[in-house]
């Protein structure tokens, strides 16, 4: 997946978790947990969905790299 595809996927998944928000309008460096007001269960659901959509198992130790859109894009490109 290229950068734009990853960001679109992440936005779609986050919009499903926080339907009253617009993740696409987030700054790339904003903490999605703060900006979208999602809690640890929401974030876990996001990681599960991201893993299923990309076929990757994301270790818990890597969660901190997924707190921003830029981080998510960089992590999934690797």
């Amino acid at each position: 997946m290229n950068d734009a595809e990853i960001r679109r996927l992440a936005c779609d998944l986050l919009a499903g978790i926080a339907p009253d928000t617009d993740p696409a309008s987030l700054a790339g460096g904003a903490d999605i947990r703060e900006a979208l007001d999602i809690d640890s269960i929401d974030f876990l659901n996001f990681v599960i969905a991201l893993g299923k959509a990309t076929g990757r198992t994301i270790p818990e130790a890597d969660y901190a790299r997924l707190f921003t859109m830029d981080g998510i894009a960089a992590y999934l490109r690797d």
Partner: peptide, 16 residues
Amino acid sequence: EAYNSERPPEQRLLPA
């Protein structure tokens, strides 16, 4: 941490 490191996200625990 030890419990979760061996499991996929859908089986992981939260402190809650």
